[in-house]
Amino acid sequence: MSITIKDVAKKAGVAPSTVSRVISDSSTISEETKKKVRKVMDELGYHLNLNARILVQKSSQTIGIVMKNSTSASLLNPVFPEFLNGISDYCSKQDFSICLTSGASEEEIFQDTVKIVRGKKVDGMIVMYSKKDDKVVPYLLESGIPFVVIGKPAYETNRIMYVDNDNVLAAKEATDYLLSLGHKRIGFISGDPRFEVSKSRFNGYRESLNENNIDMKGGYVKNFLIDQSEQGKQVVRELMSLPVPPTALLVTDDSHALFVLLVLREMKLKVPEDVSVLAFNNTVMSKLASPPLTSVNIQTYHLGNEAARGLIDLIKHPDMVKKSVIIPTTIEERESCLAYTEKNEPD
């Protein structure tokens, strides 16, 4: 015989309606009462009949996640599992499941997003990126489904809820850090420049140089796609083979920074003795790199957690004001940066 809400209410000494509100994590119920009711639920072995709940509420109790790249590429990027961990932790507490988009190209990911939304498989979507000329966000706006973007939207920010870092400030502080070590020739390497995060971090780099009256050399600014290794090798070699090469490199994510370390090693250049490297995202890769990377901690878990929190709030309260959440960043100092000396200054 299955345990019902009435059984839980009787043993806990509360009304069945109170048990229902505890299950939905209502703010009208005290934490003390919630703990008492949940303890009784555990003791009796009460489990939600999710299928019945979905039919009654006309809700899938599922959140869709639109990935930046194909499934295989996303899972190889160490920042994605950290985002996913933050999202899934909050969803689990709210009895929501997650559903990932699939597809090997931007168009396939978009078509899968359309299929998920039209099939009413999810109650809302989290878009893991922000990019100009993207088809996903305009479609979600048009469809009316609740969604949250991780990253500052490229447009219509007043209509879109988003969670982000202040990437301009973070890159400015990272560049200021390299300047404080005596570096004046600082190169900048990013991934796909179409993404807003790349643009914002470049703007912060440029802002720091301008404020310190340092000319930004065009040849010092490069980008390459992480899955195009030959292009990446060429970019790093061109940069470090300049007549006056940079003494420090600001790289916009740990994955690109690890690749840069590999090419520098092939060129017989030592980090940080010959060139300092400062990265972003502070993933586990930054700690395991050789040498360990100084990296900007963007608090990936909290970005994902806040995105899930905001979306579920929006699902439960569709008329709420769209808000943005900015997560602070810090620089985690490790061994890839060193104070500049003039020993390698060209004659």
Score class of each variant (00 low, 15 high):
residue 88 S to C: 12
residue 296 V to Y: 11
residue 38 R to V: 10
residue 197 V to T: 15
residue 73 A to Y: 01
residue 142 E to K: 15
residue 238 E to L: 01
residue 164 D to I: 12
residue 147 F to K: 02
residue 324 S to W: 06
residue 124 G to T: 04
residue 316 K to R: 14
residue 243 P to H: 08
residue 114 V to Q: 02
residue 178 L to I: 02
residue 230 E to I: 13
residue 105 S to K: 00
residue 309 R to V: 09
residue 256 H to R: 14
residue 339 A to V: 13
residue 145 I to E: 00
residue 46 Y to M: 08
residue 330 T to V: 10
residue 86 G to F: 11
residue 98 I to H: 00
residue 301 Y to G: 08
residue 289 A to H: 05
residue 295 S to K: 10
residue 167 N to W: 07
residue 238 E to G: 02
residue 286 S to E: 07
residue 138 P to G: 03
residue 137 V to S: 01
residue 13 G to V: 10
residue 214 I to H: 05
residue 267 M to G: 05
residue 82 E to D: 14
residue 121 K to M: 12
residue 104 A to N: 15
residue 140 L to W: 08
residue 48 L to F: 03
residue 325 V to Y: 11
residue 293 L to G: 06
residue 313 D to W: 13
residue 262 L to T: 15
residue 179 L to P: 05
residue 212 N to L: 11
residue 259 F to N: 09
residue 233 K to D: 08
residue 159 R to K: 15
residue 57 Q to N: 12
residue 64 G to C: 06
residue 319 D to N: 13
residue 125 M to D: 04
residue 253 D to G: 02
residue 27 S to A: 09
residue 173 E to W: 10
residue 315 I to R: 09
residue 155 Y to W: 12
residue 57 Q to L: 12
residue 38 R to K: 15
residue 53 R to D: 00
residue 131 K to Q: 02
residue 235 V to R: 02
residue 262 L to W: 13
residue 260 V to S: 04
residue 120 K to H: 13
residue 234 Q to I: 10
residue 79 V to K: 15
residue 53 R to G: 01
residue 55 L to C: 06
residue 342 E to N: 14
residue 19 V to E: 06
residue 185 R to K: 15
residue 210 N to K: 13
residue 129 Y to N: 00
residue 334 R to A: 08
residue 210 N to G: 07
residue 207 E to P: 06
residue 224 F to D: 03
residue 162 Y to K: 04
residue 70 S to H: 00
residue 311 L to Q: 05
residue 17 S to M: 10
residue 17 S to F: 07
residue 275 V to S: 01
residue 202 F to K: 10
residue 283 T to F: 12
residue 190 S to K: 09
residue 111 Q to Y: 13
residue 42 D to F: 09
residue 125 M to H: 11
residue 57 Q to I: 04
residue 265 R to G: 05
residue 13 G to R: 09
residue 119 G to T: 04
residue 135 K to I: 04
residue 188 F to Q: 03
residue 180 S to T: 11
residue 151 G to S: 03
residue 70 S to F: 01
residue 97 S to Y: 07
residue 211 E to T: 12
residue 268 K to I: 00
residue 2 S to A: 07
residue 346 P to C: 04
residue 25 D to H: 09
residue 189 I to Y: 01
residue 131 K to E: 00
residue 322 K to W: 01
residue 101 T to M: 01
residue 67 M to L: 15
residue 240 M to Q: 03
residue 171 A to R: 12
residue 179 L to R: 14
residue 313 D to G: 07
residue 172 K to M: 13
residue 149 V to G: 07
residue 296 V to L: 12
residue 154 A to V: 11
residue 341 T to M: 07
residue 136 V to W: 03
residue 19 V to S: 10
residue 162 Y to M: 03
residue 162 Y to F: 14
residue 114 V to S: 00
residue 25 D to Y: 06
residue 295 S to A: 10
residue 338 L to F: 05
residue 324 S to D: 09
residue 167 N to D: 14
residue 285 M to R: 07
residue 318 P to T: 04
residue 236 V to N: 07
residue 103 G to W: 04
residue 254 D to G: 03
residue 327 I to E: 05
residue 295 S to Q: 11
residue 151 G to N: 05
residue 144 G to V: 06
residue 16 P to G: 04
residue 106 E to L: 08
residue 318 P to M: 10
residue 281 N to A: 13
residue 27 S to P: 02
